[in-house]
Design a binder for these strands. Structure first.
Length: 604
RNA sequence: GGCCCCGUAGCUCAGGGGAUAGAGCGGCCGCCUCCUAAGCGGCAGGUCGAUGGUUCGAAUCCAUCCGGGGUCACCA
């Protein structure tokens, strides 16, 4: 535990770093700056025409390692605006880049790529940088302290969370951590839908369990929640009220039972989230918006923008419901934002639809000063996306962006069979079941091995398997090997503290296989920024798998070539190689930290 | 019918303007007197759903179509 725990940082530190905007080590960014500087010099000296836009110039790892260590597209991007041959630009740029002490080679290739090789010392220095920076290596000031609100889970407080919620919870939490790492000030938020008719259903269901606790037989009518999880609620109600509520009319007990039951459901949900390692910063209540004027004022504001009107909706196209009837309602003009229909904010009896408090809620988020909003929704909410984006866009006058990530279904497999779920029959797999069976780390990692908009197969047999077929295991194994090296070295009397390792003579890391691993470490800061910009935490999981793969490869090369083993007869060589292993461990720990997965030190 | 997502190797999936499109599984062939072989290396396997378009360049962007999934009035 120790080596990784020392790397764990609290959430606040990321924010501080982001605001300070300190210079993080990012070799790709450094070399891009060099390329841009040289291009500007070429413009100044008249080789290139002045005023070229360099925004599209990129420095990236080439897809094929045979093409060098870094590649820039500068010559191809600038050829047309400069009115020159790509090759001429590339040659001029190459000559200048070769003057930099870090650059060992610059070759023009393909349609005009400039492939760069750096001096080994530049890569070796990166290992030292990782050890010095520790858990901060890869942190970015990309977010510049901008305030981001990530709303996720937001499961109705009417029962336990199930697998679909688990995926949303993991993706939202990892995304929040990723954004924190990238320099944003992040708030994790849960919107509690405690204001609608479903909490009345919950209260009536709980009341039946209360009757049951008092020795009466419950009458769980069609439409009530049959699940066993309400039995303790009934018992708790009895403990509090005895039989006092048995003779009361519904209007007398409903409000009280509703509050009591939703509180208990939320306590259960928080407990389950905690078991998954998710901790929200803010719980916002839908119910609390009623009666405060917030809904009315948000609607007023939209009305002022000409987006609210009284009208009658067209019947739905395709298959019109048989009981369709025209009704005049208060409508939001979401068609002005590309939605295919305007959306009701008030029912025909004048009460609010679900949409109305949600408008107020998003207005509330805007007024709290967030620069960006992110909502994690289940894919069944896809039809809700346009109207909500429309609302945020209108209410914030386009100042605040809203990104909605839709989470696709999770298909559970066990013994090659699909685990059927039915909420009605009460045979759905809860988040709690999942965690009890495979542990939170496996749940989290596996849920992040797919893009959010692709359906995910969760195979109980595979995810508990200890082989490279199981990415969780594979990455953990790499970290365990790193720690195995450190243990052995300590046993041999070496000082393998980060301070000692960062002073190692890293010129011993000259083999192509070693430099390959270092290059992968060099990609980490870049990966973080790409993943953060795209709101794509799954990229971190894939990167860690690749890094682990490179490390396992290097490890095994030691079987054929003694000079590539991490523990050498010579202390100076050992320290250099251990430094590399440790650097790999540092990045794995940082990445797993973002995913919310605990690194293991030893395989058992 | 409208809208959203997906279609890449036998299977599960990455990549989302750039070079000869990648990985794991499955198949075949190799590697432990030596730091964890729970691992590694190699071989075989692809008209990136189709057709047009934009571009110096398209799996990637745009249009249309074909498959698969989701969703669609006073539920939340």
């Amino acid at each position: 535990m120790r080596t990784c725990r020392s790397l764990t940082s609290d959430r606040a530190s990321g924010m501080a770093l982001g605001i300070r905007g300190c210079d993080q080590m990012n070799l790709f960014a450094d070399i891009r700056e060099l390329v841009v500087a040289e291009l500007e010099a070429l413009m100044a000296s008249g080789v290139l025409p002045p005023g070229l836009d360099l925004a599209a110039v990129a420095v990236e790892p080439p897809r094929d390692a045979g093409h060098g260590e870094m590649a820039t597209n500068a010559a191809m991007v600038l050829a047309k605006p400069a009115g020159m041959q790509p090759r001429a630009i590339a040659d001029a740029l190459a000559a200048r880049l070769m003057e930099d002490p870090r650059v060992a080679g610059a070759d023009v290739a393909g349609p005009g790529f400039l492939n760069l090789r750096l001096q080994p010392v530049a890569w070796q220095g990166l290992v030292r940088e990782v050890l010095v920076e520790g858990a901060r290596y890869g942190r970015s000031s990309l977010g510049a302290g901008r305030k981001v609100n990530v709303e996720f889970v937001s499961a109705n407080p009417t029962g336990p969370m199930h697998v679909a919620h688990a995926r949303g919870a993991v993706v939202g939490d990892a995304l929040a951590s990723l954004l924190d790492f990238a320099g944003y000030a992040v708030t994790r938020e849960y919107y509690v839908n405690d204001g609608g008719g479903q909490v009345d259903v919950l209260a009536r269901s709980a009341y039946e369990r209360y009757r049951e606790a008092n020795g009466l037989s419950p009458e769980i009518a069609e439409g009530l929640y049959p699940g066993d999880y309400l039995i303790p609620v009934g018992e708790a109600l009895k403990a509090m009220h005895g039989d006092r509520l048995l003779d009361a009319t519904e209007s007398e007990w409903l409000a009280e039972v509703r509050v009591f039951a939703t509180d208990m459901m939320m306590a259960m949900i928080r407990h389950d989230l905690a078991a998954l390692g998710v901790e929200m910063d803010v719980y916002s209540s839908e119910k609390a918006l009623y009666g405060t004027g917030q809904i009315e004022s948000a609607i007023e504001r939209l009305k002022g923008l000409g987006l609210i009107y009284q009208g009658v909706l067209e019947p739905p196209k395709g298959k019109a419901p048989e009981d369709w009837e025209a009704r005049e309602q208060t409508l939001f003009r979401s068609t002005a934002f590309g939605d295919d229909q305007d959306r009701p904010v008030q029912k025909s009896d004048g009460s609010w639809t679900y949409f109305a408090p949600d408008i107020a809620y998003h207005w509330n988020k805007v007024t709290r000063g967030f620069d960006e909003l992110i909502n994690i929704f289940g894919a069944d909410h896809s039809g809700y996306v346009k109207r909500l984006k429309a609302v945020v866009s209108a209410l914030s006058e386009n100042k605040v962006s809203l990104d909605i990530k839709l989470i696709q279904l999770v298909k559970l497999l066990k013994g090659g069979q699909i685990v059927k779920m039915s909420k009605r029959a009460g045979t759905f797999v809860t988040l709690r079941d999942l965690i009890d069976e495979v542990g939170p780390d496996v749940v989290r990692f596996v849920m992040l091995t797919r893009k959010n908009d692709v359906a995910l197969d969760f195979d109980f047999d595979k995810v508990t398997e200890q082989s490279k077929d199981n990415p969780v295991f594979y990455v953990q194994y790499a970290n365990a090997r790193v720690n195995s090296i450190l243990r052995k070295a300590r046993d041999a009397g070496l000082d393998v503290s980060d301070a000692s390792l960062s002073a190692a003579h890293l010129a011993h890391l000259g083999h192509e296989a070693e430099l390959g691993v270092i290059r992968k470490l060099g990609e980490w800061p870049r990966l973080v920024e790409i993943a953060a910009k795209g709101h794509e935490p799954h990229r971190v999981a894939f990167y860690l798998y690749e890094l682990a793969s490179d490390f396992h490869g290097l490890w095994n090369k030691g079987n054929d070539d003694d000079s590539l083993r991490f523990l050498q007869g010579d202390t100076a060589k050992s320290l250099a190689k251990i430094a590399l292993a440790r650097a790999v461990g540092v990045v794995i720990c940082a990445g797993l930290g973002i995913l919310g997965v605990t690194p293991v030190e030893e395989m058992r």
